[in-house]
Design a protein around this nucleic acid. Structure first.
Lengths: 181, 181
DNA sequence: GTCTATATACAGATAGAC
DNA sequence: GTCTATCTGTATATAGAC
């Protein structure tokens, strides 16, 4: 895990931003190279194919989620509130990685779909001890999925305005009341 | 609203199926023509552009949802249970129309995104009188979004196994207990 | 109303110079 | 390690015959 060359991360950041802002259609290798300030050939030195580019995003997601599960388990307000609160888009690295990976999955990448399923399972495993039964865990996971879905569909603005601030607090209280062991 | 020519609906069905099964990338005009059993030129007589094809899907969705909101309001088990139950993919016309429209939105179609936002608002308006406050309505809408999200991401199998049967009944009971006015 | 043939554009990927 | 130039495939769309 020695430090990768600067251009590597720069290209990956650019590709991620394109996936989020323009969707799979706009996230071309050409556009990624341009946005990263390198030539197409330069990009292809680091990522030999578009699949390699996608694999870079997926790997980044897995790394970030592993760290987040640790943070969640140690959260003072409890894992469920932490999880739901962090399900609304804050544009931090993990949100961006999930969004970008979702776009890859939408575009037909099976490794992206697998990664999303895997990280969802990781979160579910960490939350299970804090819910009273299977339905309660389903409820928490589905509300989280719903929050992400509303962010993912069109950069955060479409279709639904996601609850924030006091509305989010009320939602979390409602869920916690329903599922407390 | 006179009956459209047969080929029109046939092409639209084929395009919808391709969006669902292959994703936006596979839903090309060429593939739609082939699947519908017409030539590319034949398709282009009915749909002059890919945007026209997308508009056909969106219009179909709006029509189906208008009818569904009526059905929901008159449902014997209550609108909330009806709504959540119908949020899991049953492969009926309305599910297929939503899935296909979601794929169009993912591909960058703003009219598809608008349609999804509009129909979500229509459902929310119909459900609001049956929830005790804004957080309760958020809860119902987000669980529904979550159910759809899990269906939409990869044809139903990825990422999460959606609760069905008894698990779905338990989930609905949990939600109804939390939100009852 | 449906077809064939073709124009245009762009994406992914290769070759090889510097 | 980064570049330019180029090949190949395929998608959207047009033109015009039948």
């Amino acid at each position: 895990m020695s430090r990768p060359p600067l251009a590597y991360e720069k290209v990956l950041d650019a590709f991620e931003a394109l996936l989020i802002d323009e969707g799979p259609r706009g996230a071309t290798m050409d556009a990624a190279a341009r946005a990263a300030g390198v030539s197409k050939g330069g990009l292809l030195y680091h990522f030999a194919s578009k699949d390699a580019l996608a694999a870079g995003i997926v790997e980044r997601l897995r790394t970030l989620v592993d760290a987040d599960v640790e943070l969640m388990a140690a959260s003072p307000e409890g894992p469920v509130a932490y999880f739901l609160r962090s399900s609304i888009m804050q544009n931090d690295p993990i949100d961006r990685a999930i969004l970008a990976t979702s776009r890859l999955a939408q575009d037909g990448s099976t490794s992206a779909s697998e990664a999303l399923r895997d990280v969802r399972n990781k979160w579910a495993d960490a939350l299970r001890p804090h819910t009273k039964d299977a339905a309660s865990l389903d409820l928490v996971m589905l509300v989280s999925d719903g929050l992400y879905f509303n962010n993912a569909l069109d950069g955060g603005s479409i279709p639904g305005p996601v609850p924030r601030g006091a509305a989010l607090d009320a939602l979390i209280a409602l869920v916690e009341g329903a599922i407390r062991r």
